Simulated scan of single mutants.
Amino acid sequence: MHKGSCLCSAVTFEIEGDFCAPDACHCSKCHKQSGHFFASADVARHQIKIHGGEVVTWYHSSENVRRGFCAVCGSSLFWDPIHCDWIAVAMGALDSPTHTKLKMHIFVADKGDYYDITDDLPRNEQ
């Protein structure tokens, strides 16, 4: 069982079982959403139970994706491809220890110019 929350704890969640290793997305939308790159892990919808869901605000960043934020404190929590059977959970919202490590970087062609990616993880340009 993994647990997590937003900054003010108005939204909490529990993940039953394991989830995929997270990736770090460097796309421009994730920059704007999180203030930096966005690290998240994919979780099957049946594995996650969200408490305080009534204060999650959903922003449709595209036709097929919405992003979930706490309406109270503004924490970025979820990246939701609405037609899939999984949801991505922000790694920063999970309580430690997570017992996982980043598996890859995506959209590295869009990364900010103020930082370098210095690890040896796989990278996808787009």
Score class of each variant (00 low, 15 high):
11 V>A: 05
42 D>M: 08
15 I>Q: 03
38 F>D: 00
36 H>G: 02
108 V>M: 07
92 G>M: 09
94 L>S: 03
89 V>Q: 06
121 L>T: 09
103 K>I: 07
104 M>T: 02
42 D>F: 12
57 T>S: 11
57 T>E: 14
122 P>L: 00
43 V>G: 02
80 D>P: 13
115 Y>E: 04
92 G>H: 13
77 L>S: 00
28 S>A: 14
44 A>S: 08
106 I>W: 10
64 N>D: 11
101 K>F: 01
21 A>E: 11
61 S>L: 01
45 R>C: 01
49 K>G: 02
86 W>T: 12
64 N>I: 08
82 I>D: 02
77 L>H: 00
78 F>V: 08
15 I>T: 05
59 Y>F: 15
71 A>Y: 01
23 D>E: 14
96 S>W: 10
74 G>N: 12
35 G>M: 09
3 K>H: 15
22 P>S: 00
53 G>H: 13
98 T>G: 00
114 Y>W: 15
41 A>C: 09
59 Y>V: 11
40 S>A: 15
66 R>C: 00
83 H>V: 13
116 D>P: 04
64 N>G: 09
4 G>C: 09
41 A>L: 05
16 E>L: 10
39 A>H: 11
53 G>C: 06
51 H>C: 03
61 S>C: 07
2 H>L: 13
15 I>V: 14
78 F>H: 03
44 A>V: 07
7 L>T: 06
111 K>A: 04
73 C>H: 05
62 S>N: 03
1 M>N: 13
7 L>H: 10
69 F>H: 07
15 I>P: 01
46 H>N: 12
58 W>Q: 06
12 T>G: 05
101 K>C: 01
120 D>Q: 15
115 Y>S: 03
96 S>G: 11
44 A>C: 03
29 K>D: 13
107 F>W: 14
90 A>D: 07
126 Q>E: 14
66 R>P: 00
32 K>C: 02
102 L>H: 10
56 V>T: 05
